[in-house]
Simulated assay, not measured.
Amino acid sequence: MHVVVGATGTVGRTAVRLLLDAGQEVAAVTRNPAAEIPDGARTVVADPSRPATLADALHGAETVLLSPRAVGDAAAELLSLAGGFGARHVVVLSAATVDHPVGDPRFIRHFDAVEAAARESSLSYTYLRCADFAANSAAWAPQIRSGDVVRGAYAKASTSPIHERDIAEIAVEALLKDAHSGRAYVLTGPESLDQHDKVRIIGETLGRELSFVELPAEAVRSAMLAQGLPDEIPDRLLGSLADYAQHPGPTTDTVERLLGRPARSFRSWAEENTHLFSADGPS
């Protein structure tokens, strides 16, 4: 059985479906009793930051797919518990910033700590150090549904955004195949794009001409806090963008090497998600 911690996250939900499609037994861990989990998976309502609540799910576990944001500071405790129940391998959804530091160091330290917990546990491990997700651009949806201008900070911040399905496919490969044990992979999309590029591509998929207008970072931060977001969100986002505006994030061919095909482009993600940005899309 494969335990997916963070099963309703951007990568986790896709990994659950892929494991089920491969005929695997899956325990999908979520804090939300009303979460929609694919048919065939065992739903486990628990709080990963309190590993004892996962004890029932970990009975019979072979592998764990671990989201650091889901587990908080409890990775070592969770993996010790999993190892005690016989789990043999953990795949950590880490961040490219571990290899290519940007932004506030405290966020990098958290990923470092979870990787260390995996390395020091009784389980073998694989680290997937991911670039920013293409899906992060969904945050622009309210602006795009209401107009043709996206306003934000650091217009020239450049990254190679990765499609969540590429991450999930590699995660499943690493869960099922011993060849990935002890490996750390930096996963990115195929091309570096700045904020202007991303907004333009979304507009082209919608048949609209969209533009990105740069605002001062402090104005963006104030707006995010006014929406009720915790300090951590603008701190994480704006710190990284400031550095990426000076030095573009990495671009690797790791997805192509591991999956035998090119990484999915940002355009492909935008084409699959036009419903998010359409006027009659989610509110």
Rank of each mutant, 00 (worst) to 15 (best):
R221N: 09
S192R: 07
S222Y: 11
D197Y: 07
A223R: 11
E214W: 00
E204H: 11
P190L: 02
V213D: 04
G207V: 11
E191F: 11
L206P: 01
E209T: 15
L193F: 03
G207Y: 01
D197H: 13
D194F: 01
K198G: 12
E191Y: 14
I201P: 07
S192V: 12
E218M: 11
R208V: 10
V213W: 00
G207C: 08
S222M: 11
P216R: 03
A217C: 10
D194A: 06
E218V: 09
D197I: 00
S222A: 15
R208H: 13
P216M: 03
R200E: 13
A219W: 14
V213P: 00
R221S: 08
V220L: 06
G203T: 07
P216Q: 06
F212L: 02
V213Y: 02
I201Y: 09
G203N: 06
E218H: 14
R208Q: 14
V213N: 03
E204I: 04
A219Q: 15
G203P: 05
I202R: 07
R208I: 11
R200T: 15
V220G: 12
L210F: 08
S211V: 15
I202C: 13
L215C: 05
I202T: 12
T205P: 03
G207Q: 06
A217P: 09
T205S: 13
E218Q: 12
F212C: 07
L206K: 03
L193N: 04
I202Y: 04
S211P: 10
L210E: 00
H196A: 06
S211Q: 14
I202V: 15
S211W: 14
H196R: 09
V199Q: 03
V199S: 09
R208D: 10
R221F: 09
Q195V: 00
L210Q: 03
R221P: 10
G203R: 06
H196W: 09
R208Y: 13
L206G: 01
T205G: 07
E204P: 09
T205Y: 13
L206I: 08
E191L: 14
I202D: 09
A217V: 04
L193K: 01
